[in-house]
Design a protein around this nucleic acid. Structure first.
Length: 308
DNA sequence: TGTTGCTTCGAAGGATTC
DNA sequence: GAATCCTTCGAAGCAACA
């Protein structure tokens, strides 16, 4: 039984994961043994997880990264064959075994709400969020500065918005507004699988991949695939000694991911065609129809509860 | 028991859309 | 201009292994 099964360790990083630091009884979460809750195991193992097809490419593929880079970098190949039903390569046995073990562990960590499904979770009262003073005031970095007010100083690019909770400074009010959500225990985006809440849509989307098994980022040098790009890049660096040549905070090529099966497409149109061809009844397409087509699966898997 | 690799997620910056 | 979406960085925690 995984160690994390019954023990919930406290986070020691101040100001981080405050939501997780809430006692379980206050959040309504309990840990439920997989063995005692077989349905969980069944419902969380998506077809994508079991049928995720990984390329057997082992040679190093070099490609020109982008027009903006003159450096030749090994390409972190993105899966093009993550279609359901594709057989797995023979050399994948060990990896599959590891993943299976890993999956069991991951599932055992899943927290399940003791109450209703997310869509029926009662909306708690919105915690008070500090107001932002409209009147520009002098921004001071003095440790003796009052901390009970959110302040703004300067104008235009020089403007600064300070969080009264942690004294962090932001260039834009929208940044501060979003930051203030971090101090709130209320999460607007709830996972349909486990009920966990997130501040951001993409945080939820990313989290849902832990339930669906979608791993869009595939290593071109081995069979491993990852849910996040940084995981792949870390893997490439540590395992294969390949450091992708990107500038600090440089944007990578956008990846269009089918959250149903993990298939990746080079463009939004290609992704749409894929959805129409293989997942005509997907939540993605339903959302597209409802919204008139915005974003690349932005609302997929979300269960938004708007408080404002 | 310490190290390594992987998974997961908080949080902020920037881009896109309304 | 605000809201939303996406990318990116970094850190915590776990399993596997030497």
């Amino acid at each position: 039984m995984p160690r994390a099964f019954l023990v919930k360790k406290a986070r020691h990083s101040p100001g981080k994961r405050n939501w997780s630091e809430l006692p379980d009884h206050e959040r309504g979460y309990v840990y439920i043994p997989v063995s005692a809750f077989p349905l969980l195991e069944e419902t969380e193992a998506s077809p994508a997880e079991t049928a995720l097809c990984l390329s057997t490419t082992t040679r190093c593929e070099y490609t020109k990264h982008t027009e903006t880079h003159s450096v030749m970098t090994p390409r972190a190949e993105l899966p093009s064959c993550t279609v359901l039903g594709r057989p797995q390569s023979p050399g994948q046995g060990l990896e599959v075994k590891r993943r299976a073990q890993s999956s069991t562990y991951v599932r055992s960590k899943i927290k399940v709400t003791t109450g209703e499904l997310p869509s029926e979770i009662p909306i708690p009262p919105q915690p008070s969020i500090p107001e932002i003073t409209k009147k520009p005031v002098a921004l001071t970095t003095s440790p003796t500065a009052p901390v009970s007010t959110v302040t703004r100083s300067g104008t235009g690019a020089q403007a600064s918005f300070v969080c009264q909770m942690c004294q962090k400074v932001f260039r834009y009010q929208r940044m501060l507004n979003r930051h203030l959500k971090c101090h709130s225990d209320t999460k607007r985006h709830l996972c349909n699988h486990c009920g966990k809440g997130f501040n951001d849509t993409f945080d939820l989307k990313r989290h849902v991949r832990t339930h669906t098994g979608v791993r869009p980022y595939k290593c071109s040098l081995c069979d491993k695939a990852f849910t996040q790009r940084c995981s792949l890049e870390s893997h490439m660096k540590k395992i294969h000694g390949v450091t992708l040549q990107y500038a600090y905070k440089e944007r990578r090529n956008k990846l269009y991911v089918c959250e149903e099966c993990g298939h990746t497409a080079p463009s939004q149109d290609a992704l749409l065609k894929h959805y129409h061809a293989l997942h005509p009844n997907s939540a993605f397409l339903r959302g597209k129809g409802a919204k008139g087509g915005r974003g690349a699966g932005g609302e997929w898997g979300t269960n938004k509860l708007k408080y404002h």
